[in-house]
Design a protein around this nucleic acid. Structure first.
Lengths: 216, 216, 216, 216
DNA sequence: CATGAATGAGCGTTCATTCAT
DNA sequence: AATGAATGAACGCTCATTCAT
């Protein structure tokens, strides 16, 4: 979870502080994006800024930890879904679950992801995840449940697209992204033959200036 | 295109500078998002900061002008597509065209759009656009060319999703978004019965830290 | 009135512009002090900034012109008062008249005066004025109407003190400075023997933050 | 003295820095008025700008602290003078002492006072001071030592007038304001019957451009 | 170890001044 | 001669980062 594997285990209070910082950071970055300052994080965690910097070299390193945690959640999700009876169910479950993670404040906006450095640990987690999702894709293809040409690399692309909608509408219409999540999942991994009608309500995108990121 | 309709035409040099500023701003905001400073814009345009502030009250006003220009382009596109022979062609043309605008640096990222104030002019252009796209959607539905349940409000949602992919991959793989653009268009407004296979190459999303927004 | 004696008379329109600029500057500086910009002056005068700079080398030179005009008014006042029948009346008339000029927006705050450069013209006007006021003081002393030790140099000091009160209270209580003007005049040049009771209402000075100069 | 009563005492170094900042600010604002920037203050205090902003929310808050400190000094002075044997001595002592504070760099110019926000603390101190000075005025009136009609509200008006002279002449003639301070005090609260001759040297007011506020 | 005080580059913005039109 | 567009140093203020306590 930290940027470098600690030589020896942390003292109990230090470990607790670390957890507080990561949790506060996750919540704040998910809620408010990159504009969050490390003072905000420290305050929310109930520690001093110095403590944050003791655990993470800089803001980027803290983001890296969050990214690593995100891959952890996805790996867990993929393992859970792999246990589902059919390939179709497994892949649909993974896709919708990943979107759910991304859409709830359990995950991170694209901006936050992009600002994070690509650590070795993150690369390792990402590779682990790739293997699992490739298996899900392969299994669904074997069942003929998947649109022709769908590749394992398309999995993150598809969830990322839905995430962008979720980011824009989270506070005004928290579940509204599902209309588009389901549309995409139905398009690549349909429940039956033919095109299902769209479900949910169409989403009027917020107008400029709503939900506006601060401008400085 | 400018914030207020000028009472009388600008002097030749002023007009040139205004164009340089707007063009520089469009490019920089499209490339790097909100982090761009008006010093950056001024430098890229080859003018002093004061010149930027002479034309635009503040950063928000400059964003507003860009947003208005964006709606202009979309209105123009919608009018062009309305002239196509079938409703299917017209809607597909508009959707893919809007994605193209959004993807090819000619438009603005969601973040930039969100930070812009919602001016009266922008509201008017947006309303004009709504009328045009609603007509395109109605025509396609009348032909039975459109997925059941697809609403006019879905048009910006769909292009916005593809835009988010394009933003992430513009510099590393400029046309790669098309795979997902076509996927979505085929899903809502298919060329024929049944699901077409996906086209283009699957896109490996850039890893965190690529294309990273500056962090301060 | 201008900083340098013009080699040849101005064209009619140029002379009109000069007068407009000086008048606008006088009013604005009297109302709002040094914070006034030369754009403000130009706009109020109905000319471009360039025109202001054509007549006055810089902001200081414009202030110099105002200072010169102020000395003009005082010279005129001194000449008028010199015609009064008694030395007492003449000096009291001048002192109260100078305070009146200073207190109404006919004149300039200490700040504006201090920021002005001391031009040769201003020095000449000031010297002329000194001669006139010294005569008034001498005449009053000769009559025994003046407090022992009162010197010609005390004249501007006394009016300046009252001016500072007037500056603070002009908008909330325009005539209130008179209580202190009369107090001072009575103290140095009394109407009769003994101390006259104070006249007018005591003035509650505005609290900080009232009438606040802008802070930037 | 600080903006808010600190919950717990400052660290030793922080307290030292705070004192340096306040002292530098007091001196600079007294010397040069509102034009002083917080960069100037920081530099004079030997700290970074950030340190100034850590202690004071903004420029106004720093001014507020100075104003509060000023009222503190005046309250202390009033209490000291209240202990003098006669009402005449007490009031004269307060008036001349207040002028001394105002003149000798220990206080703040009218402009600075006016720009300061009117905090609750300042209001409270000011009210305390009013009570004390009203008592001094009442006692002097009871002794018949005071000019008829002199009101408690005249106290700040009178010291403010002398302050304006002191501000203009501080650097060229530091004690010269006394001639006018004594003139005024003698006029409202004379030592004996009849008008005392003026004392000290008449003060040639500095010419425009001396002591000039910077003009930008 | 933890704290939070200190730093200063950099942001958005203003305005005295210059100069092409 | 007059205009107003252009310039850029400097302002008030923020925040990532360092380091004394």
């Amino acid at each position: 979870m930290s940027t470098t594997a600690p030589a020896r285990p942390l003292r109990a209070d230090a470990a607790r502080n670390l957890a507080l910082v990561v949790e506060a950071a996750r919540r704040l970055f998910a809620e408010r994006g990159l504009e969050v300052t490390l003072h905000d994080v420290a305050e929310a965690a109930g520690v001093g800024v110095g403590t944050v910097y003791r655990r993470f070299e800089d803001k980027e390193a803290l983001l890296a930890a969050l990214v690593e945690a995100k891959f952890d959640s996805l790996v867990e999700l993929a393992e859970t879904c792999a246990a589902l009876p059919t390939g179709r169910e497994a892949l649909r479950g993974y896709l919708l679950g990943a979107m759910e993670l991304r859409a709830s404040d359990k995950s991170l906006s694209t901006d936050v992801m992009r600002a994070a450095p690509y650590t070795e640990t993150a690369a390792r987690r990402r590779a682990d995840l790739s293997v699992l999702t490739a298996a899900l894709v392969g299994r669904a293809h074997a069942e003929g449940a998947l649109r022709e040409g769908f590749a394992p690399e398309d999995v993150p692309a598809v969830t990322s697209m839905v995430g962008s909608i979720a980011d824009r509408t989270r506070t005004v219409a928290p579940g509204a992204w599902r209309r588009y999540g389901v549309l995409l999942v139905d398009s690549v991994c349909p429940l039956g033959p033919g095109l299902a009608p769209m479900t949910g309500d169409p989403l009027e995108l917020p107008v400029p200036g709503c939900e506006a990121p601060v401008l400085r």
